[in-house]
Design a protein around this nucleic acid. Sequence first.
RNA 1: CGUGCUGUGGCCGAGUGGUCGAGGCGCCGGUCUGCAAAACCGGAGACGCGGGUUCGAGUCCCGCCAGUACGUCCA
Length: 470
Amino acid sequence: MGLHLYDTASRAVRPFHPKTPGEVGIYLCGATVQGSPHIGHLRSSIAVDILRRWLERSGQRVTLIRNVTDIDDKILAKAADAGQPWWAWAHRYEREFSEAYAALNVRPPTYEPRATGHITEMVELMESLVDRGHAYPGDPGNVWFDVRSWSDYGELTHQRPENLVSEEDGVEPPADKRDPLDFALWKAPKGGEPETAAWPTPYGRGRPGWHLECSAMARKYLGESFDIHAGGIDLRFPHHENEQAQSRAAGWGFAGHWFHNAWVTVSGEKMSKSLGNSLIVGEVLREADPVLLRYALSAVHYRSTLEYTPGVSLIEAGAAWERITGFVSRAIQIDDGAAGPVADVALPEGFASAMNDDVNVSAALAVVHETVRAGNSALAAGAAATQEALAARGMLDVLGLDPLDPHWAAASGSDASRAALDVLVRAVLDERARARAEKDWARADALRDRLAEAGVLVEDGADGARWSLR
RNA sequence: CGUGCUGUGGCCGAGUGGUCGAGGCGCCGGUCUGCAAAACCGGAGACGCGGGUUCGAGUCCCGCCAGUACGUCCA
């Protein structure tokens, strides 16, 4: 069975076939860099990272475009409140996002375009839409998309325009807007907004509306039609609906598959600033190992709501992770072939079919754990577990979680410090071995406790003691 | 109100209509061990409620309850 993916537009799991065999284009709505990334933002990028890794593992060449929205109302407002240039504000948080992605081993996209770098492409699209009769200029600087002119409007989220008319918002729509449903392609500067946040267009100076950038950039880098458009489920409407409407109204095919990930909840509620329950990545990582956060954010199927319980989710991830890394390191001890490259290792059938079934990571992880158990059984029986270790690592690599991935290995210290520590710990363990030989259990236990206080975990085995940091 | 989603053991979470159901955490017992840890073996424990379709439903349909997302310049 080849890869099947759920498609939001058709509300069904469909076979995935790239438009060009062997090559996959993915557009991911990245961050609006108005604030620090929280773990919900990261879930989206991890879900796509896993999809991308699996596609590549399956022999596809993937072009992944993840944009940065570096101009919008909130960025302007927050920067103004803080007395900073909007571009400085945006870039500060763009860097925070980049650091968060890197910390969680999210591989960089093929390209990461910024909205402000694509004004020309946006203006071209806008002109095309006006020419085709699907958009109209309003007050100077304002350009609106004419929703009623596009009969397929609502096809992505299966809504009828007549049901979309908001009830009583109390807010009067702008006078130059012909229909309340129309959305902005271009916005005239509001009072007090800086000159640097406006660009000239045939319709007056202004700045991009929220949706236009993604249509323009997706076309520039992936073409008029491309394979997968990804993003958080809350972007379906209005953002993606509008993107699709304006792109298709311009005559483009746009996305073949819509890949939307569910959100992260804390205590059953979506993270949001107003609830004050946002878990900022930087703060979580201050006391948590990034690999555990990645594990926790990966383990649940991407379309299921992920219930994140502080103090529980990471501990559970930690238990699973220790089990996996413990097995891998034991397997390597018996045969360092288990530390070999995994790029071409054959993966278990069950894993492949789980991944092909709409990227079912939960089911795939079950295969990983079964493999680990089989490997541990082999080790317990005195055999080597090289094949099991390589298979487990190969599967984990698809999830970005190979324990020997240099990204994670680097976090555990340099080789030199590691070697120095090993000499010191060995000295204590040798002393403890002598005490044990003399059946001086009190002394042996005291030495073990000393090491434990320093964070060194000692485990006795048939062929001596092993130590690890915890 | 409209468009959706979710409800599976103490917790997190898979699940194709058909031997009542994966995996992880936790718990209980056992093996190993000076003890511990790890590992392995075994065990207890669940399909929101009510109807319907079917020979047979966690799995399809309807209703209800509960929670939740989005509904135009607001991830």
